[in-house]
Design a protein around this nucleic acid. Structure first.
Length: 376
RNA sequence: GGGGAGAUACCAAAGUGGCCAACUGGGGCAGACUGUAAAUCUGCUGGCGCACGCCUUCGUAGGUUCGAAUCCUGCUCUCCCCA
């Protein structure tokens, strides 16, 4: 996988680049919509391409492994074929589920022993079989199996957790390098930095991860409840160490402000459920701030969702109508809100990219950060 | 015309002498949501101070009682069955 940096913005660490995969190019910085079970919830593939302008989407190893299962996945010819998406896909390894489904699993040296949240059946994920599963899914970018360290957590736990992630990385890399893709297109493997909110651990982890020459690197274990300043600090610390000429993926982040601050600190790739999940729950992100469309003040506001918004839904429908749909729990409401939010996120990173290319990113970012956090 | 049942907060519906400003559900209002067990979850929902408290409420007018949404009487209204 090739990564080319076209411009670096002089007043920050921001970079604009291009990532080339066998399923096409990705303009960075980029936001990747989350499609956990092979579906970006509420948004079909055509709208994802034509309206949202998504360049790459996520799938999730844990979820796809449990359902529909790898037999179906292989019979389909991999996830791209299965969901009819011919652009790049990244799969998360299930490391996050080790965190979010903590009640259903036990971590051991060999891997994570867990019960399915669907039917309670018992399974084991190891760094090796997670690679095998991701081979079967066939994502362009596959992730190392890690422990997404919970927050808060004490130093000793964070250190042990990080070390486990490192040992698992060695095993995952070995399996990856010993195996081949199944569907004729190349796959690449991203290691993940951990270390919670402890600078020395983050430094150690970044160095360990960077010692492996891979196509890109991820920063995990953030946006799990820690103060946002801690998150920014950790990004700065880690990005001092990760190779400059490789893409950096900040996993699970975040709010529009988080994304701009991440870009300013040298992050190239983001993913987050926020635009879709919060959208379904009535939160809209716009250039001028956040709208809780459920608030009664929008009840009779027949103005466009966003006058100069990036999605066709923005001027097609009014706030009052969208509020009505969301209040009525209509599926269409969730769809419109998701389209709006995703389009906005993709607009945001696209605009950031342009600003980096023309050198105006830093000032623009500072203005935007103020506006984006406003509650409308 | 005869017989029966019932009227509780925005709606539905518990409560049948003190633990009732009143269960619960819906609706409404507000908040949360960051590598998706989420079209989910939480709080509030008579008034005022909003902690303690105080005031006004269970169709309506009276009555019994230390005390009533709960018991008694009149009135008004609604529903069901038989003619």
């Amino acid at each position: 996988m090739k990564f080319e940096i076209y411009a670096k913005e002089p007043n920050s660490k921001a970079r604009a680049g291009e990532l080339t995969t066998d399923h096409g190019k990705i303009q960075t910085p980029i936001f990747m919509p989350v499609g956990t079970v092979g579906s970006v919830k509420g948004v079909n593939q055509r709208d994802l391409i034509e309206d949202v302008k998504a360049q790459i989407i996520l799938g999730n190893t844990y979820h796809l492994y449990l359902r529909p299962g790898m037999e179906t996945m292989q019979m389909a010819g991999g996830l791209h074929q299965f969901i009819n998406w011919d652009r790049p896909i990244l799969t998360d390894s299930g490391g996050y589920q080790v965190f979010s489904l903590a009640d259903n699993r036990k971590l051991k040296e060999d891997g994570a022993h867990f019960s399915s949240h669907i039917d309670g059946s018992k399974h084991i994920f190891t760094p090796e079989n997670i690679v095998d599963i991701q081979r079967k899914i066939g994502a362009d970018i596959i992730m190392a199996f890690d422990e997404c360290t919970p927050y808060p957590c004490d130093y000793d736990y964070a250190k042990k957790s990080m070390q486990l992630t490192h040992r698992w990385l060695e095993r995952g890399l070995k399996r990856f390098d010993e195996t081949e893709p199944l569907y004729g297109h190349k796959q690449t493997f991203f290691p993940i930095v951990q270390g919670s909110v402890f600078k020395d651990l983050r430094i150690e982890s970044a160095k360990t991860i960077a010692s492996h020459d891979r196509d890109g690197y991820a920063i995990g274990g953030l946006s799990v409840g820690e103060p946002v300043e801690d998150m920014y600090d950790m990004i700065e610390v880690v990005n001092e160490i990760l190779p400059e000429d490789k893409p950096r993926y900040l996993m699970g982040v975040g709010t529009p402000v988080n994304i701009l601050e991440g870009i300013a600190r040298g992050i190239d790739m983001f993913d987050c459920v926020m635009p879709t999940r919060n959208g379904r729950n009535g939160m809209l992100f716009t250039k001028n701030g956040i709208i809780n469309i459920k608030n009664v003040k929008w009840k009779n506001d027949f103005s466009a969702i966003e006058e100069d918004g990036a999605s066709f839904v923005d001027t097609k429908f009014s706030k009052a109508y969208l509020r009505h749909l969301i209040m009525s729990k209509e599926i269409l409401g969730a769809q419109i809100a998701s389209l709006h939010n995703l389009s906005f996120y993709l607009w945001l990173v696209g605009e950031a990219r342009q600003r980096i290319l023309d050198g105006s990113f830093y000032n623009w970012k500072n203005v935007m950060v103020q506006k984006l956090a406003v509650r409308l």
